[in-house]
Design a protein around this nucleic acid. Structure first.
Lengths: 190, 190
DNA sequence: ACCTGAACACCGTTCAAGT
DNA sequence: ACCTGAACACCGTTCAAGT
């Protein structure tokens, strides 16, 4: 049933590319930019936007495809270089850092996770890290990737910035990440 | 400057009460019910709704005022009966359980926290628990209430329900809470 | 002093009509 | 086969006009 699919028309490809480009720019300016505004910026009818990307999440995945793939690829590399817990910490640190810049890939991770339908490759990457930690006896055996991802999704809430109106407070994220990592340790079950 | 404030007109009071009642019903049906629909259900013009509650969060706080106060009051009681960590666990458990029923008080906590402007009494209650834990040497000294609340706000995401389409999975929440509690312990700093 | 409801500026989504 | 853009059913928010 392979769905042979003839090559798409060239104008469709151009439109698709222009939409992604416009979305990229829009999201870095305002993570909650409207699809309507993006369509206009891309000089494309709303219907066209809709045909290519049935919803906001699909567009986010397309825009941050490369970053997401890089993040997935980073998991085994980190495991090769560090112990499981440190690899886990650095992986999340990277994801969170991505979220602190406007319009990072964590935008896509967050949207998908919040819908309750997290991006499978991301879950798989996290699962790889957790599995390695469990085999090394360093991570509690009952930790599940989806849950940990849900826990981690608070790390890139840049809203908590400035009750005082000043600093972006990156050490808050570091501290929260530290709580998660310590909480995942295999020791001291009570 | 005490703002002496004459007693409000009786029709204003009635409207206010009717709005809260309608919102209560609407939120338990659908947590993201529109203000417009609530105004209509309360037989009130949109302007009236707006006068009483300038935004969605104000309405949420009013609807769940009693539950929020009960939650705040529970903190010292739990501390009286249990050790700091167990009290902390039960406090969050209660907040999360509240979130699993449709339209619980955690709706208000969540909305406020997500805006980056968490409900101060709730933060104070959590701070009380953390402070007791630190004094007992059981909670890591760098834990901050706002951060922990932000971490905990993933506990009542009922979205992760059913990838398999079946169970409400309350043990997922228990497990995530356990990770947070263990991560807050004062031991094993690395 | 308070309420009403039309009006404004937006959303996401659909769909007949075009090429 | 793909695109366009008007149209639909909604939002939150405001504000002149009423009582």
């Amino acid at each position: 049933m392979r769905t042979p699919r003839r090559a798409p028309r060239s104008d469709a490809l151009e439109n698709r590319a222009r939409i992604i480009e416009a979305a990229q720019a829009a999201f870095t300016g305002d993570p909650s930019a409207s699809l309507q505004a993006i369509a206009k910026a891309a000089c494309v009818g709303q219907g066209t936007m809709y045909r290519h990307f049935p919803d906001r999440e699909a567009l986010l995945l397309a825009v941050y495809r490369d970053e997401l793939e890089a993040l997935v690829a980073a998991a085994p590399l980190l495991l090769h270089e560090y112990g499981p817990l440190e690899a886990l910490r650095r992986w999340f640190e990277r994801l969170a850092a991505d979220g602190r810049v406007a319009g990072g890939a964590s935008l896509a991770v967050d949207a998908a996770t919040r819908i309750g339908r997290p991006h499978p490759p991301i879950v798989a990457a996290l699962d790889l890290l957790l599995r390695a930690g469990k085999e090394a006896g360093q991570v509690r055996p009952d930790a599940e990737a989806e849950e940990v991802l849900s826990l981690g999704s608070c790390l890139w809430r840049t809203d908590g910035w400035s009750t005082d109106g000043t600093t972006p407070c990156p050490e808050r994220g570091t501290r929260m990440l530290s709580v998660i990592i310590e909480g995942l340790r295999a020791e001291a079950r009570h």
